[in-house]
Design a binder for these strands. Structure first.
Lengths: 176, 176
DNA sequence: TTAATACGGATATTTTTTATCTGAATTGAT
DNA sequence: ATCAATTCAGATAAAAAATATCCGTATTAA
């Protein structure tokens, strides 16, 4: 069992976009450079986030990505589902319908006990991730000393002129 | 995220071995035929169960597989760990140590907040599976009408002389 | 001794994941 | 209004992993 690598990148990207607010964003190039990953593959993750309504994309010369919702309304499970899709980890192949003692299909409407047990465990897993928001992760960054260095990040972002802002007009980065 | 297919087969095999008690067992051929799956691949799963101490294997002419512990002491998570190994689904690649704002390695002893959140969710998942035993699954079979047909299974097993018993001597299949 | 069985490693096949590329769309400046 | 620059997005290729299989060896009962 293994989660897609892109999930980690996607969550980090949301974490970086969150303090910028909905008026500012980052280009794909900036996101990839900041995280030290390949831009074309980072693009794929961002596209999935965009399709799921988690980020908004702007094309054109000053285009880039912006968070589409307040960080408090984006859970870790939202990101997981956007990247991985909704398929469950345990997939029942209906063994009970195979072999010499196969059950007829008509008697197999309900999921078997094994599949039900795994479904319950996965529901608990999803529940845990759904209870944690991007805002929670960012809050940890502000207090903890072992995660991303927000101060250094802000400096880098400001010196990276092409990165922001997406839309002209007011707004600042005081949210940091 | 996807669990290995062999987990489903392994759990079904344990479910079938459980009612036979520790004095009777099934050969690989019988297990594969009953479930309608390929014997060589089923062998791989059974070897993993054997290595994990969940089943006992007997070599030789009347060899086969027997449960190594009472069904109540074998949890679904035991089987998952035997097949999949102990690696967590979310694997932190330490993005915070990469890119232009990388944190020095010395400040990254503690797991980052994202990794910690996923670890907690996975612990809940494991906890759910660890709380369900093979005995629980078998108990469902006796009462529920939508899972394996235990009566038909018993008949097939008895007519399959090579399948059991592993060890001569007393014992019966009255456990059914 | 023979036949039947499990074990272990090595090998092919398929699927999934990862990574990359090319074209279409949008924006700002000329 | 047109052009050039920059971006997104879908499609495509490479790599990795999982799945499925085979074969030689060790073991046991008849």
């Amino acid at each position: 069992m293994r989660l897609a690598q892109g999930i980690e990148w996607a969550i980090h990207a949301c974490t970086l976009l969150a303090p910028l607010g909905r008026e500012h964003g980052l280009s794909l190039t900036a996101l990839a450079a900041f995280h030290g990953v390949a831009a074309p593959y980072m693009a794929k993750q961002m596209q999935l986030l965009s399709a799921a309504g988690i980020v908004r994309s702007s094309r054109g010369a000053t285009g880039g990505y912006t968070l589409a919702k307040p960080p408090a309304e984006i859970s870790l499970y939202d990101v997981v589902r956007a990247i991985e899709g909704p398929a469950p980890a345990f997939r029942c192949t209906e063994i009970r319908q195979r072999g010499p003692c196969a059950r007829p299909r008509s008697e197999c409407r309900l999921p078997c006990g094994i599949a039900a047990a795994f479904a319950a465990a996965e529901a608990a897993w999803r529940g845990h991730l759904a209870a944690i928001s991007i805002e929670d992760i960012v809050a940890q960054l502000r207090t903890g000393a072992s995660d991303m260095d927000l101060g250094a990040a802000l400096g880098w972002l400001q010196s990276n002129a092409t990165a922001l802002p997406i839309r002209s007009g007011g707004g600042s980065m005081q949210d940091f």
